[in-house]
Design a protein around this nucleic acid. Sequence first.
DNA 1: ACAGTAACTTACTTCAAGGTGGGTACTTAC
DNA 2: GTAAGTACCCACCTTGAAGTAAGTTACTGT
Lengths: 133, 133
Amino acid sequence: MNVREQPVSETLMPPPDVNRAECPSRLVLEHVTSRWGVLVLAALLERSYRFSELRRQVGGVSEKMLAQTLQALERDGFVHRDAKPVIPPRVDYSLTPMGHEVAEQVWTLSRWVESRLDDVFEARETYDGARES
Amino acid sequence: MNVREQPVSETLMPPPDVNRAECPSRLVLEHVTSRWGVLVLAALLERSYRFSELRRQVGGVSEKMLAQTLQALERDGFVHRDAKPVIPPRVDYSLTPMGHEVAEQVWTLSRWVESRLDDVFEARETYDGARES
DNA sequence: ACAGTAACTTACTTCAAGGTGGGTACTTAC
DNA sequence: GTAAGTACCCACCTTGAAGTAAGTTACTGT
């Protein structure tokens, strides 16, 4: 048979497929499409932000959720954290090249949703109207 | 002053902005970026599905969540539901023109995440390695 | 001496997401 | 006759996501 050995892992893992429940790409997708993940990425596309600036920009995030979201995005390699060793602390958040790619997508999506809001409202009225008995 | 009356609503509503906590576009965005919403839309982009086909296609969805997700997407005007009055019941789900537009975006996003999985893993190793004490 | 500040962390609590298992109504296949 | 498929709905319960509020650090300004 002369099959070459797997170069990276002994246990050969299946190709990524979000339709499989166990596929790790689902978790990554959930990080970027999470409630605050989308908004943080989209915000960082426009410019880099400090923690509290970002908190003001993204309406309604608690400190806890912002920190949590940023950590997940940093760990996945989408966000770069630059903590200056000064007092009071100053931490700048920006997108990595890879983060920039996702951010563009979620930014576009956000804008698209905003632009189609009226159509959604109309659809809802039709839907709700049809099932009132 | 001679200000013209608002043609649609008395209470003039601010333009859609996902960065505002109360903006209704956030809810719509959450429907399409929800855990199952993304996967359902992406699946329906390839072809229309019956309920149980879709359940088989999207690994790990419960009946309850699939029904709930489809209802939200239908109400927002992204998914079209076609129930044939036959026995056993047959219901076909497909994308509306508007749904097709979002679905393309989340499909692209899903595929992008799958393709960048290795980079994410690498970033995680770097991140985790840096903070082990 | 004491308040203020930035970027968190931690503990506690609340609420929604989600899973499980039941039922339904009818038909076809075994 | 009974099991399985179909597309659900409903009630119950668990888990996890998220909010609230307080504590932490180390320095600066008054």
